Amino acid sequence: MVLILGLLACVAPATIDAYLPAFSALEREFQVPPESVPQTLGVYMSAYAAMLLLHGTLSDAWGRKPVIVASLAVYITGSVMAALAPSMDWLLAARVLQGLSAGAGLVIGQAMVRDCYQGEQAQRTLSYIVVVFNVSPALAPIVGGQLIALLGWRAVFWMLAALAAAACYLCLRRLPETLPSSKRQPLAWRQLRSDIGQLLGDVPFMGMSVALSLLIGAQAFLIGAAPDFISHTLNLPETAFAVLFVPLVVGAMLGALASAHLVRHWGDITIIRCAYGLMLASCLVYTGYLASAWHPALPWAVLLPAFFTAGLAMLMPVVTMRILAQVPSRAGLAASLLGFCQMSTFSLVSGWLVPWVYGQPLRMSAAMLICVLLSAVSWFWLQLRADRCPS
């Protein structure tokens, strides 16, 4: 089950990373300025974030597996539309359809882990899923860049449709249903509004969600600015995205493995403190390097951010399980709201704030540092609040 959930989680990041090398090709084909192309990422993430509020809720009512399979069918439709897009507007519409469906596997997968495991075992399982999940950002830009060079940018969306079709087949054949009918929550929109309102008013839940979302914002600056950083800062071709993404993903995989191992020996708080320390140190050193370097160059331009992704992957499973543990009876809804906070932040940053750092790598690293600092302050304020008010 872990491998299937990891594959499902790969769909969403592959939809982002595989087509990043196509930005220049999209500018040429549709004759739009460079600032317009990131909108294809922004509208995808906006639709992704909006639908996250429903993925978990629908799975709480109808079961995990049916919602995943239906979402994959919608995703395949959107991918085919994107591959056939005759205009920029058509492509934007297709990206919205992809966004509405791509997050089901990741969100519902978290709820399925919560259905089956508790405590330390749940954190280890989620860490292993993160390891599989991180294969996608490593391979997607490499495969995407080669497909674009050989067959054109449309081949990327045909590849994404094939990936989703394979995932759908495996779900139908191998994925068990983890939420029995007796534990499902009736789908009542009035109750849903009430439950969302309660979660929004839950200071520990929302505080931790915002702290985690700020880290996703830091990652969004790094990922969203990657096409400009690789092409114009490092002066590399569109087939060279692996130069940046492989170190980032190796760092993330090592961080996730470390989290799975350390949870057996350290407490949650120790892991979280170490992860924040690693991310802060990475962003500080990276900012110092970019401020002092006449022209950023390999290897430091790509190795230093890898320590940030290692810290983020170390922290994610631990904090995610702590957040979902706040409302164990509505794990699906909690996962949805958590995902909504994260992806809304990613959407805002990648679609509309990233152009502000184009051609300015120092601005990018400074923005990442600010996000990590705000997240750390938020998290440790919550811990102080909990210590003073244990009830």
Rank of each mutant, 00 (worst) to 15 (best):
A275W: 00
M81Y: 08
L304V: 06
R193K: 14
P141A: 13
P66I: 07
A313Y: 09
P21E: 10
L262S: 11
H55L: 12
A161P: 00
A310P: 00
L284A: 14
V246P: 03
Q121F: 08
F229P: 05
L3C: 11
T345P: 00
G267H: 13
D115V: 00
G224P: 02
S350Y: 08
Q326T: 14
L163V: 10
I108V: 12
R363F: 05
R264H: 15
H295G: 04
A331W: 02
V327F: 08
R385C: 06
H232Y: 12
A61L: 03
L214Y: 04
V32F: 05
W153T: 11
T320P: 00
M208L: 09
E177I: 04
S282D: 12
A50L: 13
F157W: 09
L337N: 06
S378G: 12
V319S: 11
L187C: 07
I230P: 07
V80L: 15
E238I: 09
R388I: 07
G78C: 12
D387V: 07
A310D: 04
Q146S: 01
A155V: 00
G251N: 02
D17W: 06
S344H: 03
F380W: 14
L58P: 01
P33D: 11
P296F: 04
G78Q: 13
W379V: 10
A275H: 07
Y169D: 04
L290D: 07
V246K: 00
C116V: 14
T15Y: 03
A104C: 06
W379A: 14
M314W: 07
P137G: 10
S181M: 01
D60G: 13
S231D: 04
S87F: 01
M81N: 01
T57Q: 11
P237V: 08
S391G: 07
R330A: 14
M364E: 03
R154P: 06
M45D: 00
C168V: 03
L298C: 07
K65H: 11
A12L: 04
L338T: 10
V131D: 10
A93S: 12
